[in-house]
């Protein structure tokens, strides 16, 4: 089995996937792509449905036996299922449910908010030829929305930003509460820690109020960073600060 991981800077979903790969001690060819310039859309498998229509937006792609896989939480589950060593999910079914539903709420509420806040502060830029190549109309619109916000167009932008910042604060409050009774979010270290950390690491600078008086979260973030697999993922950064690397993520819930 040959595995290739196309990843961006170690932030957000790329960080989850790289760190999960290293936690599991799996072998893969690593190829750095600039997600913030839309480089994923120039790859040969970009139009495969699971890449073009990925709900995650701009994220890493893992290619195994010709099949291109996306979505960091499920890729991490996939890695976890390839070997029994260093499990990244709880063994008890109920604890696994807890982890999967935690991740679900995170990718549905926190991730779109973090991507929006991140892209507003550190706008990615994609040339028009590449934008035109984006297979998903709604992801293309998120790229265009990012560009428009950066150009100062549209008045809804600020309103959305405040809502996104509130969602970051809610996520941190939830994490702080979980950590009152355990070292990691699900008891033992798991994909939930990686995915939560990966989306929130860049928010410490951008939404500082969310992290005020959250000592357990601050310690937890240190513990995550100190893990050799996370440190190794961070060492793959090409830019000065991977926490500044953002690209359009999942869309903000259309229902409100």
């Amino acid at each position: 089995m040959k595995m290739t991981v196309y990843h961006g800077e170690p932030n957000g979903p790329s960080l989850t996937v790289l760190a999960a790969l290293f936690e599991k001690g799996l072998d893969a060819e690593l190829i750095h792509i600039d997600l913030a310039r839309g480089e994923r859309h120039n790859l040969p498998f970009a139009q495969q449905p699971e890449v073009a229509l990925s709900v995650e937006g701009e994220g890493p792609v893992v290619v195994v036996d010709g099949e291109a896989m996306t979505d960091s939480v499920f890729i991490a589950c996939y890695f976890d299922e390839l070997s029994q060593d260093n499990p990244l999910r709880p063994s008890d079914s109920y604890a696994r449910w807890e982890m999967m539903s935690w991740c679900r709420q995170l990718i549905e509420r926190t991730a779109p908010a973090a991507a929006h806040v991140g892209c507003s502060a550190y706008p990615p830029s994609c040339d028009p030829t590449t934008v035109a190549r984006i297979g998903s109309v709604d992801l293309r619109e998120r790229w265009q929305g990012t560009a428009a916000r950066f150009a100062g167009e549209g008045s809804a932008a600020d309103e959305q930003l405040a809502d996104c910042q509130a969602k970051i604060a809610q996520a941190v409050a939830k994490i702080e509460a979980r950590l009152a009774s355990s070292e990691w979010l699900m008891g033992g270290f798991s994909i939930a820690d990686l995915e939560s950390y990966a989306w929130l690491a860049g928010m410490v600078e951008l939404v500082p109020s969310a992290f005020l008086d959250r000592p357990l979260t601050a310690d937890w973030m240190k513990r995550v960073r100190a893990r050799p697999a996370v440190a190794r993922a961070m060492s793959l950064a090409r830019g000065p600060d991977p926490a500044h690397a953002w690209a359009p993520g999942p869309e903000i819930n259309r229902w409100g």
């Binding site: 229509l53 709900v55 896989m69 979505d71 589950c77 996939y78 299922e81 390839l82 999942p250 819930n253």
Partner: peptide, 22 residues
Amino acid sequence: HPQDRWRMRWWMKWLDQWLGPS
């Protein structure tokens, strides 16, 4: 098979979060 499981989860998310809400 792990790859089939990945595909199962991917398609469920696409149904849950992209097609379903519409």
